[in-house]
Simulated assay, not measured.
Amino acid sequence: MVVLGAILLVLDQITKNWAEANLEELVPQPFLGEFLQLTLLYNSGAAWGMGSGITPVVTCLQMLIVVGVLVFAVTTVRSPWYALALGMILGGALGNIHDRLLRPPAPFRGEVVDFLELPNWPVFNIADMGVVGGAILVVLLSVIGLHTDPSAAEAEKPAAAETEAPEERKA
């Protein structure tokens, strides 16, 4: 999980640095025709620019989420699928936190570099893809009933079978 998060963080920062060095702000460049364009912009808010006036609060909330993900992963998660999802969320969150802490205009007020643009969708970055993809994977895993700790789920099955009434077992 931590390795995946670190890889995603590095990939995110490399692509953001490339975008800043090679793209002109707010000038779309076709990448895959009209489907995917590269448009450099700076986002001082959270998702879709919301909360741009409270960037320090957004930054602190993101840091709390990272701590929560780490605590949850260490104390609860034993499933490789959940570890994958949390690694994606961790790497993406750290990529955007890095921008907020170290990019202009100031620490805790830094603007996130966004540069990927799909039709009728806000401009985003690799970190955003990690956070959203990881969150979707967590929801999907929950919906299909995959436990965060498969060995704990197996241990619960015999205990549940023993508490059933005999007539329920026959049915």
Rank of each mutant, 00 (worst) to 15 (best):
D149K: 04
W18K: 08
A155K: 14
P122E: 09
T148W: 06
T39Y: 05
K16R: 06
V66S: 08
E117D: 13
V58A: 08
F31N: 00
F124A: 04
Q37R: 15
P119M: 10
T148D: 03
A160G: 05
A21W: 07
T39R: 14
L64F: 06
E154L: 11
P119Y: 09
L41H: 09
G68W: 09
E156F: 12
F108E: 11
E154D: 11
W48T: 08
L137N: 00
I144C: 10
P122C: 07
G87R: 02
F108P: 01
I89A: 01
P80K: 14
N22C: 01
D128M: 04
N22G: 02
L116Y: 02
Q29G: 01
F124L: 09
N96K: 09
V69K: 00
L23Y: 01
L40H: 01
L38G: 02
M63C: 14
M63Y: 09
R78W: 08
L23E: 00
L94S: 01
I136C: 15
A160F: 14
L70C: 10
D114E: 04
W18Y: 14
L23T: 01
E24I: 13
E111N: 12
L23D: 01
A106R: 11
V132I: 11
Y82V: 10
G45F: 06
W81E: 02
L86G: 01
H98I: 07
F35I: 10
V112Y: 01
I97Y: 06
S44H: 10
Q37L: 02
V77T: 11
A47P: 10
V66P: 02
G95Q: 07
V131C: 00
G134Q: 07
S142G: 15
W81V: 04
P150C: 04
I89M: 13
E24K: 14
G95I: 08
V143F: 08
G110D: 05
T76Q: 14
A135S: 14
F31S: 00
L32W: 15
A106Y: 06
D128I: 05
G45H: 08
Q29E: 12
L40R: 07
L102V: 12
V69I: 14
V71T: 07
V57G: 02
L23F: 04
P56K: 12
I126L: 14
L102N: 14
A127M: 03
E111T: 12
L101P: 03
P104T: 14
P56H: 12
L36D: 04
N96D: 09
P107Y: 06
L116F: 13
V66R: 11
M63E: 08
G68I: 10
L38K: 03
A46E: 09
G145I: 05
A135I: 06
S151P: 01
G45W: 13
A127Q: 01
G133M: 05
W121P: 03
F115C: 00
G130F: 04
E117K: 15
P104G: 15
S79P: 02
L32E: 03
A19Y: 09
D128L: 10
L141E: 05
V131M: 12
L32A: 11
